[in-house]
Design a protein around this nucleic acid. Sequence first.
DNA 1: TATTGTTATACTCTATAACTATA
DNA 2: TATAGTTATAGAGTATAACAATA
Lengths: 156, 156
Amino acid sequence: MTEKTSTAPDLGCLPSLVGYHLRMMQVMVFKDFNRELVDLELTPAVFGVLEILHHNPGLTQTPLANAIGLDRSSLVPLLDKLQKRDLVAREASVTDRRSNRLSLTPLGQQLLIEARQRVARHEARVLGALSPAETRQLFKLLTKTAAGLTAPTTAS
Amino acid sequence: MTEKTSTAPDLGCLPSLVGYHLRMMQVMVFKDFNRELVDLELTPAVFGVLEILHHNPGLTQTPLANAIGLDRSSLVPLLDKLQKRDLVAREASVTDRRSNRLSLTPLGQQLLIEARQRVARHEARVLGALSPAETRQLFKLLTKTAAGLTAPTTAS
DNA sequence: TATTGTTATACTCTATAACTATA
DNA sequence: TATAGTTATAGAGTATAACAATA
């Protein structure tokens, strides 16, 4: 009931919510990622696609879309751009001509190598305030929380 | 180099990146939030606005926009909707007639009370897999990480 | 001149539904 | 019939720039 007019407003219960912290964190982490990789024109999503294709040559579009949580129709324009940049190749499958076997081009491979180094620097910066033990702990807690959400309290 | 064609693809280095886990977590947390509050037609952002206005009656638009990390022009359509739903009131300030003093309507107050209960349930579900000590630890680590990113390594 | 809220506009990301070509 | 990729389209959500009213 205090009549705030200037200075940073009272955020109420927001700072006690996980979702609030996750969002703040994600905004900052995204900004840092972007700062490091903007001149390679790589977003986190695109880096993820390149990384997955490197490890799964011949992967087709639908399972790739599922892996990154996109509708298969939403993946199309993303791949169009990557193909136009000569980073990814679509090759009609011989065994099932409906599907495209995806792969990284040599240029895509090369860019991925550079990108990984930058992502490592970004990662080191993001986790810079944490000790190795704290970093492990953070991953453990995030993983545990996520696992608990995917497989909820076996009903009541 | 293994010719993956089916099953879930290999995610490479992605699971070792904080950003990846944050994004996955945020997607799941957002889905759970939505499931709990969709019939109140409240998104996390809108809940945040209501909560902030409750604690800062008379706040004007520009500082509110800053508080939630939006451009002041992006806040306008959001407030338009809330005003149309009779949750928020804009009142021309007497001291500075350029600015609008914002406040929750009685309906807005009432909705906020209901929303807070649901958010608490959502929060309990999200953190369900963690013990109280682990929850405290998670908050501590998220806060520490965020603080380290805002005030980076005092240059070199 | 600078600031508050607003408008006009555009861009990104995403989804749904319908289409095509295969299977 | 069902599936893989595509297209057309639409809806959020956001930003930038320019404007009117006010300071």
